[in-house]
Design a protein around this nucleic acid. Structure first.
Length: 512
RNA sequence: GGUCGGUUCGUCUAGGGGUUAGGACGUAUCCCUUUCACGGAUAAAACACGGGUUCGAUUCCCGUACCGACUACCA
């Protein structure tokens, strides 16, 4: 049992990759790395009607952004290609035929109208769940009910048909899910699912079994929405005679809406103003836009860390994990069973942690970038200084500039509430004196020298510094809150500071 | 409706036959401080319900309730 672990992420290119899909990819990736196995990506594009241009690239880009790219994929194929099901189309029919020969599948010629009629008939007869199964198939047009000659004729004449699996009337199907334990289902509740569609493409059910087998997949880690069809898949492995190499299943808990109930969806994103997709996406058909975590300012490591903890935990009290540490700590046994509500606050918190862990220079690069967009150029040293005092109060890199604009731009107006409360005669006296000292000062303008001069200005006038600090801040920045003032002063420089104080002195009227 | 799955603080969760049921986010208060934030401390806050098994159940079993997924020639 020491064969190489091979897992796959098998998304459908029908739009932007949902965050739930990203988490599934992540868990597959972590498991592969943890076990020294391989992580493959297979594009499940058997539904040609749902193909969306760009969706495939989106999947690739999203995984690349997070640094969890696959070992084998359409872009870097291994020995089990092709990695797009549409390109594997010629391979599937022989497997369907194999099942027909073994008596586990059959041709069906029913039109969609006939299927609809059947469902209506059953509904009218108060059958609870109308389905194509061991009972109803006897009344439908298929190779089980039609004379052999007629079946041959229909096939020869090119009449459209599907191939359905023949589910036994009574059989207990069981599977041992790595997360949920034994799950048992009676075959009478299963229906004769279509295996081959009339367009010659396989359905998911056939394709995923054939491909997983051919690609030597050892573990299928996928969303819980697949649990109900897992028994069918088990049956198919059995019918193909692949029981010995059947992968182990692990069905992941769902990602739920933050409020109320149900699966997390794009609607929730729009409603609450947070992203549910890794990156921005514009649907080429509808033009509909979806926002991404990346563009919102989430750092890939933070996003990954957040994502990993949506349904999994290491069992101890650690919260911050690099990708390497996640690999080391990961195990499928520690994935929870119950659905996970999405909490954007936690994502923000993770982002803040990772942001603060970054060096001033790294952060300065973001800041300089934002400034450049506004046509402002700044040297890295100054940018780093700003980043240094701003990063403790930022959630996203963009906050550095958004919250720190006053470092570059002198205030043109002043916070009314602060002005009316804190701007007074004493402040005017101290600030006037401070301005004089600044103009006369010729040494290095450090936070320390900035402070000692201010202290002197206050002391010489017999005024307590604490009483006028808010007014000083207001004069220099226009607002009543912000990072350490003396650090701000040394960054903006004494000339600029003196200018700002002068402007404030002229503009603000003295209260009282 | 049927099948399957799930249920510990508001949220993510740890735990597991006997615990003061632990941590994190968020919230509140306090400390630090020139403000805000960071940081530190503290607090409020949970085993869905009913039966059983047991000396003892939040933990095991069975029901009920609630929630969810699935129920296509979609994946």
């Amino acid at each position: 049992m020491n064969k190489e672990v091979r897992v796959r992420f098998a998304p459908s290119p029908t739009g932007a990759l949902h965050i739930g899909g990203v988490r599934t990819a992540l868990y597959n990736y972590l498991f592969a790395r943890k076990t020294g196995g391989k992580f493959l990506l297979r594009i499940e594009d058997t539904d040609q009607t749902r193909f969306v241009p760009g969706a495939e690239e989106y999947i690739k880009d999203a995984l690349d952004w997070l640094g969890i790219g696959p070992d084998e994929s359409p872009w870097n194929p291994g020995d089990c290609g092709p990695y797009r099901q549409s390109e594997r189309k010629p391979m599937y029919m022989q497997y369907a035929m194999d099942l027909i020969e073994k008596g586990h599948a059959y041709y069906a010629f029913d039109t969609s109208e006939e299927l609809e009629a059947m469902r209506e008939r059953l509904t009218a007869a108060r059958v609870v769940s109308p389905q194509y199964n061991s009972i109803t198939r006897t009344q439908m047009k298929n190779s089980l009910t039609l004379p052999e000659d007629e079946v041959k004729e229909r096939l020869a004449s090119g009449e459209p048909y599907v191939i359905r699996v023949k589910i036994p009337r009574k059989e207990e199907v069981r599977l041992n899910d790595m997360i949920r334990g034994w799950v048992m289902v009676h075959s009478s509740t299963l229906d004769d699912k279509v295996l081959m569609k009339s367009d010659g493409m396989p359905t998911y059910h056939l394709a995923n079994i054939v491909d997983d087998h051919l690609m030597k997949i050892t573990h299928v880690i996928r969303g819980e929405e697949w649990l109900p069809s897992a028994p069918l898949h088990v049956l198919l492995y059995k019918y193909f005679g692949w029981e010995d190499t059947m992968p182990q299943f692990a069905h992941l808990p769902l990602l739920l809406k933050p409020d109320g109930n149900g699966k997390l969806s794009k609607r929730d994103a729009d409603k609450h103003g947070f992203p549910v997709f890794p990156m921005d996406w514009t649907d080429p058909n509808s033009g509909e836009k979806a926002m991404g975590f990346r563009e919102h300012g989430y750092l890939p490591d933070a996003f990954l860390n957040f994502l990993a903890f949506l349904g999994w935990n290491p069992g101890d009290h650690r919260e911050l994990f690099s990708l390497e540490e996640l690999i080391d700590a990961f195990s499928i046994e520690r994935i929870g069973k119950s659905g996970t509500k999405f909490d954007i606050n936690k994502a923000k918190w993770y982002n803040e942690q990772y942001l603060r862990a970054k060096s001033d220079e790294e952060l300065a690069a973001y800041l300089l970038d934002d400034l450049e967009k506004e046509g402002i150029s700044l040297d890295l040293a100054k940018g780093s200084q700003i980043a240094h005092i701003m990063k403790e109060r930022a959630t996203f890199p963009a906050d550095l500039w958004k919250e720190g604009k006053f470092m570059i731009h002198a205030p043109t107006d002043f916070d009314e509430a602060v002005a009316s409360k804190k701007w007074n005669n004493e402040a005017v006296i101290v600030l006037s004196a401070y301005k004089e000292k600044l103009n006369l000062f010729s040494g290095e303008f450090t936070p320390e020298s900035a402070k000692s001069m201010l202290e002197q200005a206050a002391e010489e006038n017999g005024i307590k510094l604490g009483k006028i600090m808010q007014a000083v801040r207001l004069a220099a920045t226009g607002v009543g809150a912000g990072p350490d003032l003396m650090a701000v002063f040394s960054i903006i420089g004494k000339e600029e500071l003196a200018k700002r104080i002068g402007y404030a002195l002229e503009t603000l009227k003295v209260n009282i």
